Amino acid sequence: MKKSNNTKWMNYSKLALALGALTVVITACSGNSNNTAEPATTVETTTPTTTTEQPTASTAKLTAEDIPTALLKGQYKEVYAQFSDNFKKQITEKDFISSAEASLQSVKKFNKAADMEINDADVRSWVSDSGDLGLNVTIDKQGSILGLQAKALAPATTTDKVTTKNEYAFPFKGDWFVFWGGNNALINYHYEYESQRYAYDFIQRKDGFSYKGDPLKNESYYAFGQPLYAPADGKVVSVLSNIPDNEPVGKMNPKVPAGNEVVIAHANGEYSVIGHMKKGSALVKVGDMVKTGDQLGLVGNSGNSSEAHLHYQVSDGADLFKSKAIQIKWQDGSKPVQGETITAK
């Protein structure tokens, strides 16, 4: 979700940005931050060159994992050669090289932040050794680079150390995929916005896809119509359930960005916000007392949403856009990030 004067949430199924250009070219929810945890993997790199000379030509295509090393070795032409035709229309080779040199000149290595495979695309993210630059690549099964992004990161070091006082259960059951989540702008676009900094966007995924059948129909998406549950005891303070679900899928409703939602007040001044619910599915009303695990309604595709998914966050107030998000302390002790699958019972 994204707050602005027009209260707009970013569309969320595809993701790909040009180095330095930051132009979205395929779908996704997004975020800005820096991971506070130690990265799991270090990508071998060398100090980037200041020239555009290329090594001996190779017929082998770069994999997603090869991209950081190739960039830091100055293999810009080789990387650009794998850009998809659509991506090349958005940025010239000359502009790409110039932007890459400027963005990466002080980076010595990249540490892996997250990776995910969704709808035939492989999305990988890394954070620089200094922690102030993120790198993201989206590549298809044929090795074409659909998008590439270098993004300045500004960690919220104070709030990153704070978690909710209450513990929360996941508001769903079964297997759910983290599309946006974590303390990094590349893996959680919400992070740039204080009101949504620690929000999550969850989808369901089977065999690498979030849907089966006609991608323009809500019913094709595995998440659509799945039950949602109260993540903790509390009192329902806000319910909206009359907003139509967006169809064809991809058409969004920025006038009511959260779509159908339920807001629950918990102990210690904390509030759960559950958004994008299915029209007419809310099973609770304002004033109802709920217990952890009580069903609230169904997942939908209402509001400024590009695909059926659940937006969930905990805030310090009932008004989503006038409050501040709080990092969630999950009951199971986990710290989910983009690309991970959660199994909730």
Rank of each mutant, 00 (worst) to 15 (best):
M1E: 08
K2Q: 12
K3R: 12
S4V: 00
N5Q: 08
T7Q: 10
N11H: 02
N11Y: 14
K14T: 00
L17I: 11
A18M: 09
A18C: 12
L19V: 14
L22M: 08
V24P: 15
V25S: 11
S30H: 14
S30T: 15
V43C: 06
E44T: 13
T50F: 02
A57D: 03
S58H: 08
P68D: 09
L72V: 03
K77H: 14
S84E: 05
N86H: 07
K89R: 12
K89P: 07
T92W: 04
D95P: 01
I97M: 15
S99I: 01
A114Y: 14
V127H: 06
S128I: 04
G134L: 04
G134W: 01
I139V: 10
G143A: 10
G147Q: 03
A150R: 06
A150W: 11
L153F: 06
A154N: 15
A154L: 14
P155V: 10
T158A: 15
D160H: 11
K161A: 15
K161D: 05
V162M: 12
N166A: 06
G174M: 11
W176A: 00
G181A: 08
H190F: 07
S195F: 04
R197H: 09
R197V: 09
Y198V: 02
R205M: 07
K206A: 00
F209D: 05
D214Y: 06
L216S: 15
L216W: 03
N218Q: 09
Y222N: 04
L228F: 04
A230H: 03
A232F: 01
V237N: 01
I243T: 08
P244R: 08
D245Q: 02
N246T: 02
V256N: 14
E261T: 08
H266D: 05
H266A: 14
K278C: 09
K285I: 10
K285E: 14
G287D: 13
M289F: 08
M289P: 00
M289H: 14
K291A: 14
G293V: 07
D294E: 02
Q295C: 02
G300T: 07
S302K: 05
S305W: 00
H309E: 03
L310K: 10
D316S: 09
A318M: 14
I328P: 08
G333Y: 07
G339I: 12
T341A: 09
I342F: 06
